[in-house]
Design a protein around this nucleic acid. Structure first.
Lengths: 214, 214
DNA sequence: TATGGAATTATTGCATACAATCTGGGATAT
DNA sequence: ATATCCCAGATTGTATGCAATAATTCCATA
């Protein structure tokens, strides 16, 4: 699609994920329309789509604001991922094609390269991490699983604090990614599922520790 | 909200779930606008929301058609429910409030009453069944789990054939509902999770048998 | 000074008009 | 006869104007 509303949607979407539009920020139709050089009509369509991505809150006559997620909600989302993604990894090991493996290993290499730097740039790492998980779900051949889980993965990007990991955690996470890719390559479905479960639970434990949860 | 787009959305939504707008049916903005006595503008907003419910397919310049789900996709959806709903039942047993119990038992009674008739009216049973599962998820206190899973439950209603069960299956299903409600009432979280797992897997096996899957 | 309310302003909701695009049929050339 | 191109109708995409609603400010009053 090359429609205006689609361009506007993607732009706003990206700006929310990048943090340019911060949580709580008001998104006025008129402002956005002027900014993107279109009328309010395509902006309205774009905003409606963002509601369904659960990236903005929209109430009639009151407008749209960038939606935030409380720590507890982020925990819930990670717990759901802990239920879904191991199954995705298991099926990926059984159904993956060569193109999936190529992209998975490529993503591993790129993330590791970014991880070698002294200052970790999470704004660059996060999209690669997301993509890794999405490719794995795509490789599972389960389209519904891909759709449902992808939206959850994106939401984890909204909370900026989630991106901040200690060096050791990043190294461990990248190592798990590579183990996952290898298990999937070799068709070791149980192993892949187990690694993914540990991987998500590690992120969960990490997040809980950061927010000082019980 | 009392906006026109909201009314239109709910009406179309209901008509799709009820089967009045069949799978594959083209939804023209102009037709709908005339039919509901509004302009195309609120209709477009409503259609956009239905896209995000994954109830219609929408491609630019080509319009909207009621989306169908292939048997394999429906299996995928049930498999996802088999991952999520047991966890919902487990937490419901721990977090449920009295109002949840009241509604669960009420729904059981109403379903059983409908089940006593000689001719099973699935158009009446299905909404109660859906509601039962939703209340259980609501009782879990996990808002994200509720949102994610509810959309999946609704999709199972799109396929009409899914509604057709044999008498024995209906009786078994209702019995499981009541066992679930009791387990939740007593706070037996493991039991509730186990019953739910069996419940969804029974629906899954049933569906696979109907479509003649391996 | 604090408070309540009314008017004003800003913003969203809807309708209409027009532009862009797709679809289908028929004419024409091979 | 068949394939291709083009045009007309239909449908969606966008812009704009106006109505409806919510937020804000300012003034009157306690």
């Amino acid at each position: 699609m090359a429609t205006s509303s689609d361009r506007v949607y993607r732009q706003i979407h990206e700006r929310i994920l990048s943090g340019e539009y911060a949580v709580g920020a008001r998104l006025r139709e008129g402002e956005l329309a002027t900014q993107f050089g279109v009328s309010r009509t395509p902006v309205r369509i774009a905003l409606q789509r963002l509601v369904n991505d659960r990236l903005i809150d929209f109430t009639a006559h009151a407008g749209a604001i960038v939606r935030g997620y409380a720590d507890a909600e982020m925990v819930e989302i990670l717990e759901i991922r802990a239920l879904l993604e191991p199954q995705g990894a298991r099926l990926a090991a059984l159904n993956r094609k060569q193109e999936h493996l190529d992209e998975l290993f490529d993503l591993c290499a790129r993330m590791e390269k970014l991880g070698d730097r002294n200052d970790l740039d999470f704004s660059k790492i996060a999209p690669l991490n997301n993509r890794f998980h999405q490719v794995l779900l795509d490789a599972s051949g389960q389209r519904q699983l891909l759709v449902v889980t992808t939206s959850l993965i994106e939401l984890n990007n909204v909370v900026q604090s989630y991106r901040k990991f200690a060096r050791a955690d990043v190294d461990r996470s990248f190592a798990e990614h590579r183990q996952l890719a290898k298990a999937v390559e070799r068709g070791q479905s149980d192993l892949a599922a187990a690694i993914m479960l540990a991987h998500v639970h590690a992120a969960l434990a990490n997040f809980k520790m950061r927010i000082g949860a019980p």
